[in-house]
Amino acid sequence: MKSKSIKEKVMHIVFLAAAMVCIMAVVLICVFLLANGVPAMGKIGVFNFLLGKTWRPGQDIYGILPMILGSIYVTAGAIIIGVPIGIMTAVFMARYCPKKIYAPLKGAIDLLAGIPSVVYGFFGLVIIVPFVRDTFGGSGNSILTACVLLGFMILPTIIGVCESSLRAVPEEYYQNALALGATHERSIFKVVLPTAKSGVLTGVVLGIGRAIGETMAVIMIAGNQARMPKGLLKGVRTLTANIVMEMGYAADLHREALIATGVVLFVFILLINLCLAAIKKGVEQ
């Protein structure tokens, strides 16, 4: 008995330590970001930093509004493209898909989730960039290209979460709707899908998180010009791209300004997590 209780205590400490690693990581990242980023914001001026329209490190002008807008535009575009396709695919997989097609389709979507983002970038570079250039003009490295590629990239996230929430809706909802004379389609879209609403929203918000944090694929196809976004077919630089492009050679205030860019990104992710928490809370009520 005694040896068992010692063993339990030891294991208790081991588990606690494991949990602490996770918390420590988050705390350390927060401390590092804030300690290095916030003073830079002070030096540049919070207003000048967040709302400045010009980013010219050579002249010590650090305004990241172009990058904030760039991230928001690209993410919004990815949502516009990815969400409808993702939800429709999830509905198809949960309610329409013949058994024979399901396994390969599910496999393909899981594979899509596992492809490294640099490979997505290559795909964009070789296929989407030339397509956009030939169809709509411009150089092809543009907001539109980034939206399309990110739209693809967030599909597995949205499909996975939506499908499982659709499957969690009791079959009786569907039968009750059918028994009122509704068609298969109407029963699914007006009754089953709204019942799964919170799950669908969770999928969308996770997709937003994925899109806003994506770096490598975006750098390869978005053009990365640090200027205010001028149009769908013009190049754009996102917050993530800004950090990666310049971190290698930046020093002093420039370097700190890039870390401050990371702080802004961090705040975005924090907001997204708050949204998720709010959705979950809404479900419990």
Binding site: E172, Y173, A179, G181, T183, T195
Partner: peptide, 20 residues
């Protein structure tokens, strides 16, 4: 069949109002 189910309504064992 949809017309049939319009003419012949059904009430199930378990009450299940839609989430609205």
């Amino acid at each position: 069949v949809n017309l049939l189910r319009k003419r012949v309504g059904m009430v199930f064992q378990k009450p299940l109002p839609f989430k609205m």
